[in-house]
């Protein structure tokens, strides 16, 4: 460093190194300045004055209020993921009243944004299940939904008291929907309950039914009551009666409608898997969707074999043992995968 021997008090007080030493006396400049101060009584005197000068400069400290701090943070969160939202900007020449008006409209805009944003994300309730998990969900209208493995059900937390009740589903669920009377609004009667799926809507009043939406395809099985399916792409409406099963492929072009034993399709909620004349390929798909296994069947011809039987949903071994004995196959299972393979003739 330079020789500060001839420096004045104000030069010292303006020196970056000296300021740092005053702020942090134990810092890296300590040795240098201590030596300098000890060189002469004049130096010591100058240093004392300069220190005093520096430490006498005080500024009022204004702390931000907790509310303001939170308010700004919330605004940042709103805007940070939506680049199209303009920051509040102020036009020139605005009076306080004008500003208040602008502030009010910004506030209204933010509230609107909040409500809109709220509808899209945070005010949603969501229930979801992991692979191999089953969960019972009670909706605000006290309808009950049983969610099968690997499924998500969403609904709005602030459901209105009239009009339709709505839920959104991916995966598989069994619905037990209450009949609820309209308590307000123009139309008397019951409030419809609507299940939104990727490729259709199911409208009911009060019924029990099972819905599966996997791999773009949807299957609805009606146990009791009456439901109406709407396919938006083809504007087709299908009325279902108890015991009906409707299967719709993703593109909504292929629709099958037939009678089945409905309890077989919702047996999973009693922790049972019931297969009724289903192909091994269909069973493999079911295991993949609900248990996260990768299932291999060899050879391909085996995939078309059909199987009937029931098994506890949490004890797949039972299923595998009966598969092994019915089709003369080996079922090899590890954490991730299941291989169903025809036994060699020699093993017979």
């Amino acid at each position: 460093m330079k020789d500060f021997q001839d420096y004045t008090v104000e030069e010292l007080a303006s020196d970056q190194g000296f300021i740092q030493w005053v702020v942090d006396p134990e810092g890296e400049n300590n040795a240098y300045w201590t030596r300098w101060v000890n060189l002469s009584p004049e130096n010591a005197d100058k240093a004392t004055q300069a220190k005093k000068l520096i430490s006498d400069i005080r500024f009022n400290y204004y702390a931000i209020g907790d509310h303001a701090k939170q308010r700004i943070w919330t605004a940042i969160q709103f805007k940070k993921n939506s680049p199209n939202v303009k920051h509040p900007s102020h036009t020139s020449r605005i009076s306080r009243y004008r500003y208040a008006g602008i502030a009010a409209s910004i506030a209204i805009f933010l509230v609107a944004l909040y409500v809109f944003w709220g509808m899209l994300t945070p005010n949603w309730n969501e229930a979801s299940t992991a692979y191999g998990e089953i969960k019972k969900v009670m909706l605000p209208d006290s309808s009950v939904v049983i969610l099968n493995a690997n499924s998500i059900l969403r609904w709005q937390s602030m459901a209105p008291t009239h009009g339709q009740r709505e839920v959104w589903l991916t995966g598989e669920a069994y619905f037990d929907v209450n009949k609820v009377k309209q308590t307000a609004g123009d139309s008397p009667g019951f409030r419809p309950f609507v299940v939104h799926l990727e490729n259709m809507e199911i409208e009911v009043l009060g019924t029990t039914f099972n819905v599966v939406h996997r791999r773009e395809n949807t299957q609805v099985v009606l146990n009791t009551g009456k439901v109406q399916l709407s396919l938006p792409k083809t504007a087709k409406k299908i009325d279902m009666l108890p015991g009906d099963m409707v299967e719709v492929e993703g593109d909504q072009q292929k629709v099958s409608h037939r009678k089945v034993e409905p309890s077989n399709y919702s047996a999973w909620k009693e922790n049972k898997l019931i297969f009724n004349h289903q192909t091994l390929e269909e069973i493999a798909t079911y295991l993949e969707d609900n248990y996260d296994y990768e299932v291999h069947i060899e050879p391909d011809s085996l995939k078309e074999e059909r199987f009937s039987g029931s098994t506890p949903a949490d004890q797949l071994e039972v299923l595998f043992i009966s598969l092994e004995s019915s089709f003369n196959v080996n079922v090899i299972r590890d954490d991730k995968s299941i291989v169903i393979k025809k036994k060699n003739l020699s093993e017979k």
Partner: peptide, 23 residues
């Protein structure tokens, strides 16, 4: 905020600027 408050007492402007900076 403290820096802004040394410059002006119009806290709404300070708040706007804080917002802008973090964005």
């Amino acid at each position: 905020f403290n820096y802004g408050r040394q410059i002006t007492d119009q806290e709404h402007l300070i708040e706007d600027s804080i917002q802008e900076v973090f964005l």
